[in-house]
Design a binder for these strands. Sequence first.
DNA 1: CTACCGGTCAAACGTATGTTTCAAACAGGT
DNA 2: ACCTGTTTGAAACATACGTTTGACCGGTAG
Lengths: 223, 223
Amino acid sequence: MAQSDTVDRILDAAEVLFAERGFSETSLRMITSKASVNLAAVNYHFGSKNALIHAVFARFLTPFSQTLEQAFDDLERRCNGKPPTLDQTLRALTESAVCMPQRNDRGISIFMRLLGLAYTQSQGHLRKFLEQEYSHPFGRFMRLLKEATPQLTAVERYWRIQFMLGATAFTMSSSDALRDILQNKLGVETTVQEIVARLVPFLAAGMQATDPMQVAVSKPSVA
Amino acid sequence: MAQSDTVDRILDAAEVLFAERGFSETSLRMITSKASVNLAAVNYHFGSKNALIHAVFARFLTPFSQTLEQAFDDLERRCNGKPPTLDQTLRALTESAVCMPQRNDRGISIFMRLLGLAYTQSQGHLRKFLEQEYSHPFGRFMRLLKEATPQLTAVERYWRIQFMLGATAFTMSSSDALRDILQNKLGVETTVQEIVARLVPFLAAGMQATDPMQVAVSKPSVA
DNA sequence: CTACCGGTCAAACGTATGTTTCAAACAGGT
DNA sequence: ACCTGTTTGAAACATACGTTTGACCGGTAG
C-alpha cells in the first residue's frame, strides 16, 4: 500500500456507480464514500469529474482496443485476402469483449452498460474523448462490415448499422435491469455471454434481410 | 388565452429539452425560460419535476395507446381467429406511431427519444408510472408477438423484443441527426416513413432468425 | 535535524438545483 | 363594482453539487 491504491479504489467505485446510476446521477461524494477515500482525492488525482469518467473508460477501452485490433489481424490473416464474413466480424468483436481479463465476474456487464450510457446520455465531452482516442479500431470495424455486406446499398447498410448499434447499446445499457426482470418473471438466470450469443444471430439475420427498397423496385406491388 | 396555455407551453418546452439533454440534465429553469413562463409555474401546475415528466409522457402516450388498441382491434378482426403475423403486428405498431396527430414534424422523433431515455436513464419513478399506466396495450402487444413467433422459447423471445426495442428507440431518437449525416455523406434524402420501412424488415428478420440456443442443443459441436 | 514533497484530510467556497412563499394581477359570477 | 378563487411574479429557501483551500502527516534526501 506504499503508493496510493487510492486511484484504483476510486476507479473501481466510480465504474460500478456510473453503471448503476449514470454519470450525472452519481456524485463525487457517493464515489469517494464508497471507495472510502477523501472527497478531494478525485480532483487531486484526476483533476475533475469529467476526467475521472474518461479514466474509467480508458482503463477498460485501451487494452480492449488492442485486443480487438489483434483479433482483426488474426481474422484477416486467416482469410488471406478474402473479406471475412459478417458473422466472423461480429464474433471477433464480441469475443474480444467477452474474453478481456476481468477484474471480477460482473466486469464485462458493467462495461457494456457504460458503453451504452456513453451513447445514450448526452455527455458531449465523453463522445469527443472516445472518438479521438479510439477512432482507429472503430473505423476498421466499419470497413469490415462494408466488405462483409457487399449486396447492400450504401444507404441501406448505413441504416442497418444504426439498427445494430441501437439494439446493442440499448440492450447493454439496461442489461442488469433486464436480467432482473427476466429472473423475476421467468425465474431464469442470464449471463452476459448468453445475451451476446443471442444478440449476434439477431443482428446478423437483420443485416442480411432482403433489402425492402430493392424488392420494391423489382416487384413494386408485392403484398 | 383565457385559461392558461402556460401548461402547454411548459409541456412543449420540457418535451424538447428532455429529449435533447435527458431528465436530470434539464433544469426547471431551462424549461421555464424556454417556455417564457415563471419558474414557480411548474410546481404550481404540476406539483413537482417528476410529475412534469409524467405529464410529458402522458400527453403523448395516452392518445397513442388508444390509437394502438384500435389498430390491434382492426388487425384481429381482419384475421378473424387466426393470430396476426409478425409483420402485421409490427406494422400495426409503427403505423400507429407514425400516424399520430403531431404537434410538429419532429414530434415522432422527439417522442421516440424520450421513450428510449425512459428505459435508459435510471428514473425509478418514471418506469413505475409507465408500467402501471400503460400496461394494457403493452401486454397486448407482447401477446401478439408471442402468438406470431410460437417457435421461440419465452426467454429467447424476451431478449429479441429487447433488441427490437433498442434498435427502434435508438434509431428514432437520433433520426434527425442521422438523416442529416446521410444527406451530407451520400446526398440522400430520407423520411421517417422510409426509415420505418427499412427498420421493420430488419426487425422481422432478426426475430425470425434460428434460435442459437436450440441449435446449440441439437448440434452442440457445429462450427 | 531540517527541508522538502507526494499524499490525505476536514472544512469551506461559489454555484445551481428543486421547492416554497407571499403579494400582486387577473378572471368570472353576482 | 365587488368579492372569490385562480394564476402569475420576483424573491428567497434549503440543499446538493464540483471544486478549492490550507493545514497536516510520513517518508526521503541533503
